[in-house]
Amino acid sequence: MRDASFLLLVFLALTGCRSLDVPPRQESLDRIRRAEKVIAEARPSVHIIGKALMVRRDVQLRVRLDAVNRILRQFSGNRSDDFTFLFTGDHPLVTREFLVPLSVDLDSGTVSVNIKNMEVRSEGDSLRLFLRATGRGKLHLTGKAIATAHVSPDLFVRADDSVILRFAVARNGDIVLAPGYDSLALEMTFTVRIFSMEIPWKHVEYFPARSILPPIRLPVSIGDIVGNAEDRYSERFKSTRLIDISVKLINDFIVLEGRFDWEDREGR
């Protein structure tokens, strides 16, 4: 029966009983004219904006600094223990002539630091991270002074200290903001108690910024598709990565450009 109906349909097609429904030429020409008029009116304003958006490679990502700062704000605030120093060794902290020669070594102790504020600002060609933190803890001191010390709560990373942030694309396509090799000055104010006297003492340590601040991964990844079972063809999109990358700061945006490389990475 199926063969018979197919024969019939082919036959009907051949005899012209079925024809394609094509609108008359004049009707189409009128529609074309009307559409072209609308396009001519709307296009100039859109075209000017488009021309100003330059993409030299396959893709350009613009990240607004304000968005980065909103993310960073979530990494600071009222939580405790953003990072912790666990001191394990002797270190001359205090050496001072005070009635009698006084020297105190840092023996051990823990300082928990809470980041109060992090902010990125563009300065010239670089992106700088400004950071403020406070901390508290107890240090055990040894030395000539009969003393125990605690760290007063105003331990902070100096407000004028900043580190250069690097905006990078990891091999897996993740976009991260990571500090460079700069050091952060961590200024600690101790109060050393000797008998009933309290002697304030300021001490500055320099730490590599990248050991304090982990790279912050932004919610954007360029490259390999995270496939799932629904995507029947996701395999075809898997061997992608961004190459030939450039990063610039333009006004209040971090601008990253790159090309997609579709070659199979396994083969290289």
Binding site: D81, T84, F85, F87, E205
Partner: peptide, 23 residues
């Protein structure tokens, strides 16, 4: 966001840790 653990062996010796986070 993976936390960090850095052991500094110069003086002062210390271990610096920051916790894992989930954004």
């Amino acid at each position: 966001i993976k936390g960090t653990r850095v052991e500094v062996i110069t003086r002062p010796r210390f271990v610096l840790t920051s916790p894992n986070r989930l954004a």
